[in-house]
Design a protein around this nucleic acid. Structure first.
Lengths: 133, 133
DNA sequence: ATATATTTTTGTAATGATTACAAATTTAGA
DNA sequence: TCTAAATTTGTAATCATTACAAAAATATAT
């Protein structure tokens, strides 16, 4: 995918920092925190500021190309995948896995008259890698 | 329900503060934050410390009589209902509603070999009260 | 009942994520 | 090039949460 083009399509001027941040989010698929993104990119962009990472992610969210995962820990994680999907967080190693689910099955009849904008499914436990250790 | 007894059953000594905090959680059912609990109870218990609220909720969680709802906002909310259920958060008024759901419908086949301990379903949008205003 | 040990509560200081804000830099337009 | 607008940066402020030790309350032993 052409990242600069993808940003432009969503009304975001493709600056160097924005391209790098989106590229990281999109390629790594590791649901990083702001700190993880910052630490990784400051090697390539020595002048990078954490504030820029915050600003940029907020912009991405406004423009609808990034979503947040607040599975716990008072630390927000970010995700470039916008399809409805859930997350599994391993309480042992901290990794976050994507899980597909079909939400139409989940009883939503209680929410009649409500305007649903966003749905998140979070599952916590231990991943198979940690279990087999 | 006899709260002192309920606490004792779960290996928690029923001190005055603990009873009051659990009582608030159980009766109000409003998924309060630490700050909400503190502000409400400090009228009745003028010497109450916010640290006590934190300590007490952590103890309740350890003993399995309280769960957390981290739907967003970097502010943890607490819940005395321990049955599996989801939450709807109104982005307009901030209220959190309980929603029942049948989790067996949600595709969990991807999590074979994983040990699932906890599941949360979060829905965001606008509640009917805010929509009809 | 008194002294002692244990538990609980409290207050203050520290931590860590996030935001506010203004200056510096970069980019775009005349 | 010169000027205006947008973007980035660094520092300070904010806010939830935790660490920690002293104070208070409760339980236990003499």
């Amino acid at each position: 995918m052409n990242i600069a083009h993808h940003l432009s399509e969503h009304d975001i001027k493709p600056s160097y920092q924005r391209i790098k941040i989106y590229e990281y989010l999109y390629k790594e698929m590791n649901h990083p925190s702001v700190d993880t993104i910052y630490k990784k990119l400051v090697g390539e962009i020595p002048t990078l500021s954490k504030t820029t990472v915050y600003n940029t992610l907020k912009l991405f969210i406004d423009k609808g190309i990034t979503s947040t995962v607040t599975i716990e820990d008072n630390e927000v994680r970010y995700d470039a995948i916008m399809d409805a999907h859930g997350h599994f967080k391993c309480t042992s190693c901290g990794a976050i896995y994507d899980i597909k689910y079909d939400f139409k099955d989940v009883a939503m009849n209680e929410l009649k008259g409500f305007e649903v904008k966003e749905t998140q499914v979070h599952v916590k436990g231990k991943c198979n890698q940690c279990l087999t250790k």
